[in-house]
Design a binder for these strands. Structure first.
Length: 612
RNA sequence: GGGGGCGUAGCUCAAUUGGUUAGAGCGCUGCCCUGUCACGGCAGAGGUUACGGGUUCGAGCCCCGCCGCUCCCGCCA
């Protein structure tokens, strides 16, 4: 039985036609003498009617047997619904199919959870949804995400093609490069004791493609990182990976702005304004306390270093004397913060090494008229300091003022964390409106090229060692590495890091300086780890740079869902298992022998797999 | 590796804080019903309270362990 139309197609224009629909029994309404069956396919649903006065008794009898999620083919004549029975909730609601033939293509057992009721389905335990993923995907809400993902991937490919990019696939079986994230290893049967690794990203390959003269490369690349999961992190995920030759940072900005403009238009029919705002790393931290700020709401950090430089409050003046800063933020309307909330915020501060968290609750005084600053520290403040706080933080009754006095980065990050925490609470209380349909894109630029590892007493690359320094900062590499800014950029939207990249070093001399003098990596080791790349760069490497966007995160934003599991067809759990296929699982002893692998853990007879 | 939340009928949840036979809505089964679309009505079935110990006269509830899902920190660009 072939369908003539899909289930979201019939309109008044089709009235009179004989049609065949195929799909699942979405719902049945058996009125005794009359039966309505809604047939659903991926496009939508259509009401079919079984009228016994019109049908052979045998056919009507079979219609009575139909149950939810059976697979059927239904043939009949399209007709206008009787007056007053239209269903405005569905696009096919003006017509119905008067059945003349029914074919049961398959029966179905009662589903373990409903797929026809969004309100219930959305609350179903995720464990169950993942075990029966094929049923979860049948739900229109999730099916919609898959379709949108496909649409966006296609739009991206079309865009890149228009821009002259080549889509090039790079190996999944790659070489172990023990930098950054933990890798998945794949034992090599052919040579005992050797391994491939799954790529954390195609970083090296895409740079080598530039040496190969590809000039413009992109790939929707699967990447693998054996790290612990989050709502926005899976063991395997997809990057929109890009690399270009003969370009500067501005070229990347323009390209990505064009791409995202296209994607938002295609996916949501939303015109996003370009170019995007740019924030330096320093400004992002100064104002928002984080390198991926959500700029949809204010509550920005305010600096009080000068005001408290000579304060009698030693916690503040002492921090300044140590080269630190004093910063504060006004959590508008949070004076009523509970003990528990203040404790949580204090824990954040302590996790950054602070001793505690200074705060002021601005509340009505005992007389009900005056405003009182309730705080253990306010007694240390003089009138000038109080006036400065009041004016710069615009303090009013009902506010909660929070302070951090520490080294610059620490102080910013503490308040950045607290700013987001307060925003969440205020959102929950309805005191802060952060529109979900607003997209604040921005570039964060001029990251420090290097970070300092106190434990190992050495510099490390904050992005990766091939990131080019800002040209005018190159002389500082040897004299003041801390001040060197990298030609690194992150694309951020609404507090989510969508992607990042950099212009790469292509001059052997600069690369040598970075490796040997700054990062203090011995030449032999450099050769061992990056030899093939350095070799490639000897033979005419063009200036180049690139970026990678987290495709799953991008889709999660477009689908307005907090978890990338909702935009991945077959995601894994937080512990990295697939509940549907029950993987990872044990393997046959012969497989292990072939791979020259001997286990040091007891292997259970059946899955699930042993504890790591 | 660490911390938090959750686990009771097929699903979503409740169970007066340790007390009789563990309930409700939806779903499911049967019967009735000719304009429903959250159809309606009547009747019914359905429980190892994740699992294993312990405390107690008595445990869904308290304690210990363990498994799973989830969120966060660490980790991860």
């Amino acid at each position: 039985m072939k369908r003539t139309h899909h289930c979201n197609e019939l309109r008044p224009a089709h009235i009179g036609q004989t049609v065949t629909l195929t799909g699942w029994v979405h719902s049945r309404r058996d009125l005794g003498g009359l039966i309505f069956i809604d047939v659903r396919d991926r496009e939508g649903r259509t009401q079919t009617v079984f009228d016994p006065s019109d049908l052979p008794p045998e056919l009507f009898k079979r219609a009575e047997q139909l149950r939810s999620e059976w697979v059927v083919g239904i043939t009949g004549k399209v007709r206008q619904r009787p007056a007053g029975t239209n269903n405005a909730k569905i696009p096919t609601g003006e017509v119905e199919v008067m059945t003349t033939a029914l074919e049961v293509l398959n029966t179905a057992e009662v589903l373990p959870f409903p797929v026809d009721d969004p309100e219930v389905s959305n609350k179903v335990n995720e464990e169950l949804r993942l075990k029966y993923r094929y049923l979860d995907l049948r739900r229109p809400e999730i099916a919609r995400n898959l379709r949108l993902r496909s649409k966006v991937a296609t739009a991206a490919r079309v865009f890149f093609d228009e821009q002259g990019f080549l889509e090039v696939e790079t190996p999944i079986l790659f070489k172990s490069t023990p930098e950054g994230a933990r890798e998945f290893l794949v034992p090599n049967r052919r040579e005992p004791g050797t391994f491939y690794a799954l790529p954390q990203s195609p970083q090296q390959f895409k740079q080598i493609l530039m040496v190969a003269g590809v000039e413009k490369y992109y790939q929707l690349a699967r990447c693998f990182r054996d790290e612990d999961q989050r709502a926005d992190r899976q063991l395997e995920f997809t990057q929109v990976d890009i690399e270009m030759s003969f370009i500067e940072r501005e070229d990347i900005y323009a390209l990505i702005e064009g791409l995202l403009k296209r994607v938002w238009k295609v996916a949501l029919n939303v015109d996003i304004p370009t170019p995007f705002k740019r924030l330096t790393f320093e400004e992002a931290l100064n104002r928002f306390g984080i390198d991926k700020p959500d700029t949809r709401f204010g509550m920005e950090l305010v600096d009080f270093t000068e005001e408290f430089r000579a304060s009698t409050f030693k916690v503040f003046s002492g921090a300044v004397a140590n080269g630190g800063v004093v910063k504060a933020l006004n959590a508008k309307g949070m004076a009523g913060a509970t003990q528990g909330q203040v404790e949580t915020m204090t824990e954040y501060a302590k996790s950054f090494g602070a001793k505690g968290l200074a705060f002021i609750k601005v509340e009505k005084g005992a007389d009900g008229a005056t405003v009182e600053w309730k705080s253990p520290i306010v007694k240390f403040f003089n009138d000038t300091e109080k006036a400065a706080l009041t004016s710069k933080l615009k303090i009013e009754e009902g506010d909660l003022i929070l302070f951090a006095a520490d080294q610059w980065l620490n102080a910013c990050e503490i308040l950045g964390k607290i700013r987001l925490y307060c925003a969440d609470i205020l959102k929950g209380q309805g005191k802060l409106n952060v529109p979900a349909d607003q997209f604040n894109f921005l570039w964060v630029i001029e990251f420090p090229l290097l970070g300092f590892d106190r434990e190992q007493n050495r510099w490390y690359s904050s992005h990766h060692p091939f990131t080019a320094p800002v040209t005018e900062d190159i002389p500082l590499l040897k004299t003041d590495p801390k001040k060197v800014r990298g030609q690194h950029y992150d694309i951020v939207v609404n507090g989510v890091e969508l992607g990042g990249g950099s212009i790469r070093i292509h001059q052997p001399a600069v690369q040598k300086t970075v490796f040997e003098e700054v990062l203090q990596i011995a030449p032999e080791e450099t050769q061992l780890r990056f030899g093939y790349m350095l070799d490639a760069f000897k033979y005419g490497a063009p200036p180049h740079g690139g970026i990678a966007l987290g495709f799953d995160r991008l889709m999660a934003i477009l689908c307005n869902t907090p978890s990338i599991r909702d935009v991945i067809a077959f995601p894994k759990t937080a512990k990295g298992t697939c509940l549907m296929t029950d993987s990872p699982s044990t393997v046959e002893p012969k497989q292990l022998r072939d791979l020259h692998i001997e286990l040091k853990v007891k292997q259970p007879l059946a899955t699930p797999a042993p504890k790591a």
